[in-house]
Simulated assay, not measured.
Amino acid sequence: MFNKEDAFHGVMAAVALVAVLYTRRGLQQGLQEMRWRLTIHSLTVRDTYGSPVQLQSFSGQVMLIVNIASKCGLTSSQYDGLRQLMEEYEERGLSILNFPCNQFGGQMPESDGQEMLDHLRKEGANIGHLFAKIDVKGAQADPLYKLLTRQQPDIEWNFVKFLVDRRGNVYKRYGAELEPVALAHDIELLLADASE
């Protein structure tokens, strides 16, 4: 026998379910959009001694973010190129952020802190800001690298470079073997962009 009350409750349950699913979908889309709006400036990293550094402190500067290694075949030329970029552009607003990484053949065995600083001094590598050793790929990747690699996920080797504009948005990614001085044109463009 047809019961109007049961039918009404059934319709109301269906409406409620549709409303819940619609709301859930909207929340998921909103969360995804928020993730895409994140900038580098919204993150905090650790320096080589473990102290927190808010990347907001680099707001208004062009950043070059690099995963460095001490024992890689690319180390000498990359350090030299990064040093040249520092000398040329630091006073105009370029900051180079170096993140040691030991994920590629164990080529960054130095410990954070004094041992890392001693290595850079020995190499004459005045290459910018030094941060704590991190993972740049895989499940344990640092949140910074998760953000940097969201469009091209895999870091292939040491010395992959990311150029970030003054607002904290990733401008471009450069492969490991590209010499840092090859970024000069793009750095000039970002430094000259008055809208930032």
Rank of each mutant, 00 (worst) to 15 (best):
F2A: 12
D6F: 08
H9A: 10
V11H: 11
V11F: 14
A16L: 13
V20I: 12
Y22E: 12
L27T: 07
Q29G: 13
L31Y: 15
L31T: 15
E33T: 05
W36F: 11
R37V: 08
R37A: 15
L43Y: 08
D47V: 01
S51D: 11
P52F: 00
Q54M: 10
L55P: 00
Q56R: 14
S57D: 11
G60V: 00
G60H: 09
Q61V: 07
V62K: 02
L64Q: 01
V66E: 03
I68N: 00
A69E: 04
K71M: 10
K71F: 10
C72I: 01
C72D: 05
T75Q: 04
S76L: 07
S76I: 10
Y79K: 03
D80K: 15
G81W: 07
G81H: 02
L82H: 03
L82G: 01
Q84M: 07
L85E: 00
M86P: 08
M86N: 10
E87I: 08
L94Q: 02
L97F: 08
P100V: 05
N102E: 02
Q103A: 06
G105M: 03
P109H: 01
E110S: 07
D112T: 01
G113V: 00
Q114F: 12
E115W: 04
M116W: 08
R121W: 09
I127A: 04
G128L: 05
G128Q: 02
A132T: 09
K133W: 04
K137G: 05
K137W: 09
A141T: 04
A141W: 05
K146C: 06
K146Q: 09
L147P: 00
L147D: 03
T149H: 07
T149A: 06
T149C: 15
R150P: 04
Q151V: 10
Q152T: 15
Q152R: 11
I155S: 13
E156N: 11
N158W: 01
N158L: 05
N158D: 03
G168I: 01
N169R: 15
Y171L: 08
A176H: 15
L178H: 11
P180H: 01
A182L: 12
A184Y: 10
H185R: 10
D186Q: 01
I187D: 04
E188D: 13
L189F: 05
L190R: 03
L191A: 04
A192L: 09
A194V: 13
